[in-house]
Design a protein around this nucleic acid. Structure first.
Length: 652
DNA sequence: TTTAGGG
DNA sequence: CCCTAAA
């Protein structure tokens, strides 16, 4: 079956073009998902193979499943790709998994394997669960994870609710395209509800059912070895990590689809997930997903849903996070036994993933394109469930410059879109027009002219990256059928989310001094690499030059950063390098310039010449510091020619 | 990051 | 002004 995991990237609402692109790509999804999912029980061998379950095993599980009172929900084919897996935590503090999908009988690939394994796990803890049931408290917590827009779909799910073999828990991966104006993948025309209603509201109808059910997977109960196995099944690779906590977290995250988590309006505090208020949800444009948790009892807490993602979320998005935190606080009051505190402490300790872990994530990511044969045995198009992604919430000072935290890659053929670790380029930002122009209206036009394609593609660097990645599957061993829909080519994946790294200050942070009309002076010049680079030209004002000279006389030439700090701290532009450059020019000018040239130069350039006294001063300083411009001996004629780019010697 | 230089 | 190599 085709599993579509939609990852929302929050708030790209303003990037209209991108939305368009993405939405179009999203269109291809609906058709693929039209058949109910059928789960088959399998046993997962140690080596990762899937072995059909025996009748006995099935019986056993069925028993369990029934016990769990779980159900399979089938989503009508509304044209919306939707898949929901919700994770619920009952009072006993364990995870229940349930999978409801509205997809065809395609292959679940990894996802399937995961669930299957989960079922096994469920069995393992079955006994224990029963015991727990007898004494469990009526109070329970409820966790739901889904994407913001997915909320829209819940109603549908309910309507179409049917009994089907199901997995006994409610793991809700709500993959859906995003909804609402922010939505990148979906669009109104698809007939989906765009209300952006809060997930909790939608979900509420389901609550009664779930709340009373039990049967969760308790990762705590698993041994390291088991965790490893689970990890393996979940991520399709081995892990050598011995850290049990980490393993559990990874797995839990995977199950809860941390991508969604990070992108949501909820926040997790001390291993508690707190739901954001509905108002907040709908109002929060940045969050594309919502995890709602109703923590009604002290007993039920969500332990492993905690994730880096959340952490990152908090780190990066102060606004939302803080808001939520308050609420958390409230919730927190109701919970409060020793146990929890212990857990909280534990959670705190493992907050920040170590580098090693992060690297592992990346490693895993890269491997996804080389799925292991074993995992594809029973599936036509094996799809790897992405490892939990480490999401970095986007938050930018400037609305125009946003960071796309999530990334949605799809494996061609499998139709599976998976959340990915955001790849933040560590090196210099790419300099393609698109990215550079993107946020600069002035340049935009030019950029558009120069490269229509690129612009329309608009995903920015990352998108292109995705494109590259996705197109390469041609080299993959497995035959891939590209479910092409209306559109070809770019439809491959919902270029939805990309990670655009924060741009290095492409915008002045503050208003320039009155005399500058900076933006209007922006010019783009072609680059050797075919790229474009922006050339800002801000004429130096006499005042600036004076300050510069002062600074040089004070600190001496060469201490540009110091001078910058002292005299140009108020000028956001004018970097120390700029100072250095200017000084260089002043120097040249001061030596090359001859009073006799004044008249000529004025006419020639139409700019005010630098007052002689300034030049004299510069010259003096230069002499003092033994600075002699390279060719001060050259004739006056060289003056103009020698001038460096935007800065004519001797002129402001 | 900051400097120094080339372009 | 941009870009880089060095430090």
């Amino acid at each position: 079956m085709k599993t579509v995991i939609g990852i929302e990237d929050y708030d790209h609402g303003k990037l209209e073009d991108s939305r368009v692109d993405r939405s179009s790509s999203a269109l291809s999804l609906p058709k693929q998902i039209s058949n109910p999912v059928v789960y088959k029980l399998v046993r997962v061998e140690g080596d990762g193979r899937l072995v059909p379950a025996t009748d006995d095993e099935v019986m056993e599980v069925e028993d369990f499943l029934e016990y769990e009172n779980s159900e399979m929900r089938v989503v009508a084919d509304t044209g919306q790709s939707l898949e929901c897996i919700s994770i619920e935590r009952s009072s006993s503090g364990k995870l229940r998994l349930e999978c409801s999908e509205g997809t065809a009988e395609a292959d679940l690939g990894k996802l399937n394997a995961k669930f299957q394994y989960i079922e096994q796990m469920l069995q393992k803890v079955k006994q224990e669960e029963k015991l727990r049931l007898s004494s469990r408290s009526p109070i329970r917590s409820h966790v739901q994870i889904d994407s913001q827009c997915s909320a829209d779909k819940f109603p549908v799910i309910n309507e179409k609710d049917q009994e089907a073999p199901s997995i006994a828990s409610s793991l809700n991966y709500c993959h859906s395209n995003q909804s609402g104006s922010i939505d990148q993948c979906s669009r109104p025309s698809e007939g989906m509800i765009e209300s952006g209603s809060s997930a909790s509201a939608v979900y509420s109808p389901l609550k009664p059912e779930f709340s009373m059910t039990d049967g969760e997977i308790c990762l705590d109960k698993l041994s390291i070895k088991e965790l490893h196995e689970l990890f393996k099944v979940t991520f399709g690779r081995e892990t050598t990590v011995k850290d049990k906590q980490w393993l559990k977290r990874r797995i839990a995250m995977s199950l809860t689809n941390s991508c969604d988590v990070s992108a949501t309006t909820f926040t997790i505090k001390d291993s508690k997930i707190t739901r954001k208020r509905e108002e907040e949800c709908s109002a929060n444009v940045n969050a594309a997903a919502v995890i709602s948790v109703e923590n009604m009892a002290g007993e039920g807490d969500v332990k492993y849903v905690d994730s880096y993602a959340v952490e990152g979320y908090r780190d990066d998005d102060n606004q939302v996070a803080s808001e939520t935190r308050l609420e958390n606080h409230n919730t927190e009051h109701e919970l409060g036994d020793e146990d929890q505190r212990r857990e909280q402490r534990a959670a705190k300790r493992m907050r920040k993933p170590t580098k090693r872990y992060i690297e592992e994530l990346s490693e895993n990511e890269s491997r996804e394109y080389n799925p292991r044969p074993s995992s594809s045995i029973k599936n036509t198009g094996h799809s790897h469930v992405s490892p939990t992604s480490y999401i970095r919430p986007a938050r930018n000072a400037f609305p125009e410059v946003r960071t796309f935290v999530t990334r949605l890659d799809s494996l061609v053929g499998s139709g599976v879109q998976i959340p990915r670790v955001s790849r933040v380029r560590r090196s210099r930002p790419r300099k393609n027009i698109t990215s550079l122009m993107k946020f600069h209206p002035t340049g935009m036009v030019e950029a558009a002219k120069l490269s229509n394609n690129t612009v329309s593609d608009h995903g920015s660097d990352t998108d292109s990256e995705i494109q590259e990645k996705v197109s390469m599957p041609s080299s993959m061993p497995v035959k891939i059928h590209q479910p092409s829909t209306s559109e070809s080519g770019k439809e491959k994946q919902c270029p939805v989310i990309g990670t655009t790294e924060p741009r290095q200050e492409l915008r002045p942070k503050k208003i320039d001094p009155p005399s500058h009309t900076a933006e209007s002076n922006m010019v783009t010049v072609p680059t050797a690499k075919g790229g474009m680079r922006r050339k800002h030209h801000r004429a130096w004002t006499l005042a600036e030059v004076t300050k510069l000279i002062e600074g040089v006389s004070r600190c001496g030439p060469g201490r540009w950063s110091e001078i910058k700090r002292q005299s140009f701290s108020s000028y956001s532009h004018r970097t120390s390098v700029d100072l250095k450059d200017k000084w260089r020019n002043l120097l040249k000018a001061s030596f090359a310039h001859t009073p006799a040239d004044e008249g000529m130069n004025s006419r020639k350039h139409g700019t005010a010449p630098i007052p002689e006294h300034i030049l004299v001063r510069v010259r003096d300083l230069a002499v003092m510091n033994s600075q002699v411009p390279p060719h001060f001996s050259s004739s006056k004629l060289t003056t103009g020619a020698a001038s460096v780019h935007g800065d004519r010697l001797g002129y402001l």
